[in-house]
Design a protein around this nucleic acid. Structure first.
Lengths: 236, 236
DNA sequence: ACTGTTAGTTAGGGACTCTAACTCAAGTTA
DNA sequence: TAACTTGAGTTAGAGTCCCTAACTAACAGT
């Protein structure tokens, strides 16, 4: 009785996973814009309309792929942050940066799904914004060990205002920093924004292949960028 | 005789321009992956196959759009560099950075055509690599006024090797720096790479819309990043 | 045996892209 | 003036593709 229903559910989940996996493969080959349920069905070896029992449509599938990817990236950074919990802040920053890059380089199309050219005719649901924010939480904790520096003053001021005006952000920062916050939220946030911009700068260039044929290792550039940031905010 | 041929040539060029303009509009709406000659023809109000007299195919059109865009961006940066030729190096760096961002923000789809997710099933011809390099020439001249700094040492070393191994790069650097080169090419190049990575970091995030809903002005972040770089390399 | 649910199929409408072959106008040359 | 050439543009057609609608098969439970 209930066992049969359970088995069905399991099978359903299994098929959904297969669909998502094949879809990712197609995205890697043909780009996210070309994703269609029928196309996935053909590759799976089943007739087109069958998949509409599993996903309402292309947008539905795409949304789930994006949400999954955010979760996966967040996990990777979280793991790096936790594993280095006892290390000096500078080393932790490097660890998280390496994890960010490693995740992106291992599956560039997935990274570009999150941070690349937006898919035309597709409106990401609002929940993805929160997911994106959650990814950066480990950085927030690490950069809370830093201080502000003169050049960052304008950015810090803007972020202070943002925190003051948007309660959701204030909550998020407070949670991520923990109760015994030694650094002001706006200062930590300024560091996070800078780190994120630099991470994305290096990683996205590598992901789209623009470093190809330039005699440099992206990891070198990334390490340099993170060290420069650590110097600026005074991480040990 | 020759006049008629001239008139035809002019008309042809005019039509090609119209095609390119409409194509850019479609790219902005539907993404580069969805670009087709037939689609452009429909919008122009002419029957599909007509356009095949002007472009061999979609890839041909796309290549020309990309080459044009590189040239346009290069012009913009060049102009900013020239206009500030007498200013201190730090101010020149800011000027070029502002020009870079302004160009990209005014037409994000065009920026993403150059530096966004690559178009699937499209192989950019080799010449685009040189075009891309040319864009950064103004930065090279400006950052030649800087020195190396300890954190950049690994990157500098890698670039020195690259310069030594690839004559084309060496030539390019020498040309851009001018004959009276006070700074070593590898040092200047390390600064350029860093500047480029940061420029792209800020600008691409803005172009894909990831800054939306974050209480900060991209220009503030960009200025901070450039100032931090100027500090590191010791620009006045 | 009967009912309800779920997975899957076939059929069909609608749209699109590009190749091939043809028309038409204009200019050139004999 | 008549024939030839060149280039722009059109229509016709083959090949794809996606998704909706309606139907069939299998299965579990009453």
């Amino acid at each position: 009785m209930a066992e049969a229903v359970e088995r069905r559910k399991r099978y359903r989940e299994q098929v959904r996973d297969e669909i998502k996996q094949v879809a990712l493969g197609q995205i890697a080959r043909d780009g996210a814009a070309a994703l269609t349920l029928t196309g996935v069905a053909k590759e799976i070896g089943v007739s087109g309309p069958a998949l509409y029992k599993y996903f309402a449509g292309r947008d539905d599938l795409l949304t789930e792929l994006i949400v999954d990817s955010y979760a996966s990236l967040a996990d990777a950074l979280d793991a790096a942050g936790s594993a280095s919990a006892e290390a000096p802040a500078r080393e932790r920053l490097h660890a998280v940066a390496r994890a960010y890059r490693a995740w992106a380089v291992a599956q560039p199309h997935r990274y570009l799904l999150l941070a690349g050219t937006p898919v035309p005719r597709y409106d990401a649901p609002a929940e993805t914004v929160d997911r994106a924010r959650a990814v950066l939480a480990p950085l927030l904790e690490i950069l809370a060990a830093g201080r502000s520096w003169p050049r960052a003053e304008p950015l810090r001021a803007e972020l202070a205002e943002w925190i003051a005006e948007v309660p959701a952000v204030a909550d998020w920062v407070r949670d991520a920093l923990g109760p015994a916050a030694t650094t002001a939220p706006d200062v930590a946030l300024a560091g996070v924004v800078t780190a994120w911009v630099r991470l994305h700068g290096v990683v996205s260039i590598e992901a789209v292949g623009l470093f190809n044929g330039m005699g440099l290792r992206p990891a070198t550039v990334l390490a340099l960028e993170m060290d420069a940031l650590a110097d600026a905010v005074g991480l040990d």
